[in-house]
């Protein structure tokens, strides 16, 4: 069976985030912005089909507040 989920996830750092909102443009399926402009991330691993755009979302952040990390590391 083909794998549909990666073992990667997006990790958001609320202290660094400055509400640029670019991540939600790059990955609207996985990121919406709250009423103040800060991202709300869909829970769980990133599906394979969205991986490229999840990478783009992380790369788009001007303050690097969004990172793609292995799921095991983010669970705490």
């Amino acid at each position: 069976m083909a794998r549909t989920a990666t073992d990667l996830t997006l990790q958001w750092n609320p202290i660094d985030c400055r509400a640029f909102g670019l991540c939600a443009e790059e990955l609207p399926e996985g990121i919406v912005l709250d009423e103040w402009g800060y991202p709300l991330l869909a829970a769980g691993p990133i599906p394979v089909r969205l991986l490229r755009r999840a990478r783009a979302a992380a790369a788009a952040c001007p303050v690097l507040a969004l990172k793609l990390v292995a799921r095991s590391r983010s669970a705490s």
Partner: peptide, 12 residues
Amino acid sequence: GRCGPCMFGLPA
């Protein structure tokens, strides 16, 4: 005053 959801959310 470091995190958006806190600095805007709590006053809201």
